[in-house]
Amino acid sequence: MSTNLGAIQGLGLSMVYGFVKQTGGHVKIYSEVGQGTTIRMYLPRSSGQEDVQVAIIDGPVEGGPETILVTEDDEGVRATVVEMLQELGYRVLKAPDASAALTILESGMPIDMLFTDVVMPGPLKSAELARKAKERLPSIAVLFTSAYTENSIVHGGRLDPGVQLLSKPYTREALARKIRHLLNNEKQVALSAEKSENIDPDPRDNTGDASSEQAASRRVLLVEDNALIRMSDADMLADLGYEVLEAESAEEGLQILEQAGVEILVTDLGLPVMSGEELAREVRRRWPHIGIVFATGMNEAPSLEDGPAAVLLRKPHGPDELKTALDAVLPLT
């Protein structure tokens, strides 16, 4: 509780008191000479659902041929990241600070992803670097990394809400999956933009398609935080004959599910706050009859312990891949 007799008093008890009071509880201390001290902490009982331990995907990782710009001021960390990415097949450019990274971005060299530490030395900060990168290369994917949590970074004003963050320390597998997911997500955005520019004025005739007749009575909840991808996927679902409900977050999706009957959930994995995997587990617990499709840039879908397996829909995808995934989950609903 404190240091040696006569020394400065420690902070143990004050920290305990502060923690307990913040949680709505209280502390009782009883001391008796020659017997010792008893401390009892009383904390409010929680009636919420116990957190479910999420299974980590440990399958093979996947790289690619894209070009990634790594911005990291720590030379040792930078060298390690560059080596890992090169082993995955990526072409890697490197910069020790944001200003050097901006020079590379302005060189006209094709770059698919900016991977930058949040805290960078110099006058140009990482958030501003990301904005400038998007101005020059609108299709570039941006991934931040930091030893701080996403909540502390966003609440501290260093980054905007909804950014993609990989927390340090991270494994080679976590790095590979996060990068592949974001790169594939950007490809899906590009496909969605292309589709919106080339809308067929004559919608396809699905009246003779047996699976479309089956789809006509099905309602799909589409959960996707990227507005362009969500709009494109909703159009494809409607073209396939489904009734579509849309949500941009897992929390909004749960609110819809509480009010409307749904047969199929199509969800992105990389949702803000509550992830697509957490959403799927909650849906499986509360509505086990709903079929689940994971639309993701990753090469594997999380496994759900109870009920039928979820179906993987990889990004980028078109209407044919979407139809195949829905056909696979329809018999399960």
Rank of each mutant, 00 (worst) to 15 (best):
E66M: 12
V82F: 08
R78L: 15
P121E: 08
G59A: 13
P121R: 08
I68N: 00
M120N: 03
K134Q: 10
L105I: 13
Q86G: 12
S99A: 10
S139Q: 12
E83I: 10
T149F: 07
A130I: 03
T67S: 14
V118D: 07
I56S: 11
I57T: 10
T71F: 06
T145R: 03
P96G: 07
M84Q: 12
G64P: 08
I68A: 04
E83C: 11
S146A: 11
E106K: 14
R78H: 09
R91F: 06
D73N: 15
A130D: 01
R91D: 08
L105R: 04
T67C: 15
K94R: 07
D117S: 09
R131L: 07
R91I: 09
L93N: 04
K125E: 12
T71R: 02
I111A: 00
D112W: 05
A95P: 05
V118I: 11
V119R: 14
E106H: 09
S107P: 01
E87T: 01
T103F: 01
G89I: 12
V82C: 13
I104T: 12
G64K: 08
E83H: 15
K94E: 13
E135A: 13
A130K: 03
K94P: 00
E62V: 13
S139C: 05
V92Y: 04
M109A: 09
A55S: 14
R136P: 00
A133M: 08
G63S: 03
K134R: 13
G64W: 10
E87Q: 12
K132W: 07
A147E: 06
R131T: 06
A147K: 07
V82Y: 05
L124K: 05
L69A: 03
A127P: 02
R136M: 14
L114Y: 08
E106L: 12
Y148W: 10
Y148L: 13
G63E: 03
G64L: 10
P110R: 07
V92A: 06
K132H: 07
E72W: 10
T67Q: 12
